[in-house]
Design a binder for these strands. Structure first.
Length: 259
DNA sequence: ATGCCTCCCCGAGGGAGA
């Protein structure tokens, strides 16, 4: 099965480019972030007509995540557990029934800027809650993955200009340490298990010709449990869609599982 | 460079993104 993650920066503004990419890339499952839509306004029939089951966890104005799937979905959970007062729509998970059952978790991790401040505190707290859910997935020995916009630059080679990110919430040592703690539970960064070196990005700023000059960062990640990593066939980044008309500032990251 | 651009809210201009 082919699974992708894609921060689309607004579903209303991206219906056409998302549809074009779906027809070309033909993923079985897509984890979407920043749908910027309430559930009632998500254009679900657009994607249902393409053969996708649509599950959303939206909110008004910003954030919002969703799953599109050509395979049956079961046991859908909306919202990251651990804080009932958190009203931001940043997490959705479900079990995909393919040749094997795969637990897929779609996430939109808080940006965290400016630092210091309440937004950065929220980011670190969200990472702590993510680690708890990650520990459960490891303990259960499920075939599982957590994918989405992590808003984390894991290593200097994941930025074209790492020195510009030194004081940023996406790259601060405290942010990367919290991310490493999750990796160290036993997760595999799918992309880095197949590709090394600099120059692989998933986000280019709209400003200052970042795409044309290839000034990007890699912040959209697939983390796989061990039982899931054993099934990994291929992984890639569809960077070319960043050059399309009216693009998101992120591009799709995808992988193929023997499942 | 507290900007640069683009999304959302709506129907102006501000919040948010990263």
């Amino acid at each position: 099965m082919k699974i992708a993650t894609y921060n689309i920066n607004g579903i209303k503004a991206r219906i056409q480019s998302l549809t074009n990419w779906l027809k070309q890339a033909k993923p079985d499952i897509v984890l979407l972030q920043e749908i910027k839509s309430v559930d009632e306004n998500f254009p679900r029939e657009f994607f249902e007509n393409m053969g996708y089951q649509v599950e959303t966890h939206g909110q008004k104005g910003f954030n919002g995540v969703a799953i599109l799937s050509k395979l049956p979905l079961e046991d859908i959970v909306r919202g990251l557990p651990g804080d009932t007062s958190d009203t931001q729509a940043r997490w959705i998970e479900a079990t995909v029934i393919g040749n094997k059952a795969v637990r897929v978790c779609g996430l939109y991790l808080p940006n965290g800027n400016p630092v210091p401040g309440p937004k950065y505190d929220y980011k670190l707290e969200w990472l702590r809650r993510l680690k708890k859910r990650a520990e459960e997935l490891i303990k259960s020995e499920e075939i599982a993955l957590m994918a989405g916009d992590y808003n984390i630059i894991p290593q200097p080679e994941d930025a074209a200009k790492p020195h510009e990110w030194i004081a940023d919430a996406l790259h601060l040592p405290q942010s990367r340490a919290a991310y490493r703690e999750i990796i160290n539970l036993g997760f595999t960064d799918a992309f880095r298990s197949k590709h090394t070196g600099p120059g692989h990005y998933s986000f280019w700023d709209y400003q200052a010709g970042s795409w044309q000059r290839n000034i990007g960062i890699r912040i959209d990640h697939f983390l796989l449990t061990a039982t899931c990593a054993d099934l990994l066939i291929d992984v890639g980044i569809d960077s070319c869609v960043r050059g399309d008309e009216k693009p998101s500032d992120h591009v799709p990251v995808w992988l193929q599982l023997d499942a």
